[in-house]
């Protein structure tokens, strides 16, 4: 039951990814999902894991999420420049020249 609020936030992130078709909002859903994962990890300190292990895990998770967002958003910018939309249904190819 201790994890229920974090799981609720994770569900919201998942629902954001299901409901929206704009690439940007899909990224927002992923960020919420990853942040909820960090919250679950921090709650696990008291239960089973050592605090340092969890802290390092969360630190790494934050850095990897930042790198993922940077790369993903640059790809979104490029696709938006090419297709004039950020609706993921319009993206059928990542390759230059592909429609």
């Amino acid at each position: 039951m201790i994890y229920a609020p974090a799981l609720a936030l994770a569900c919201i992130g998942f629902l954001v990814m299901i409901r929206h078709r704009q690439a940007l909002l899909l990224f927002m859903g992923v960020e919420i999902l990853l942040a909820a994962g960090n919250w679950v990890a921090l709650l696990a300190v008291d239960q089973r894991l050592l605090s340092q292990h969890v802290a390092v895990f969360i630190l790494f998770s934050i850095v990897v999420a930042a790198a993922e967002a940077t790369l993903g958003l640059s790809i979104v910018l490029r696709l938006a420049h090419r297709h004039r939309t950020i609706d993921v249904r319009a993206f059928t190819s990542l390759r230059d020249g592909g429609e």
Binding site: L24, A35, A65, A66, A69, T70, L73, A80, I86
Partner: peptide, 22 residues
């Protein structure tokens, strides 16, 4: 968490909102 997400990633997201037809 606040520095990286609130200060970094979110500023980037808002820039993308401004630069794309969203």
């Amino acid at each position: 968490q606040i520095l990286v997400y609130g200060g970094g990633v979110l500023v980037m997201v808002l820039f993308v909102v401004m630069l794309t037809p969203s």
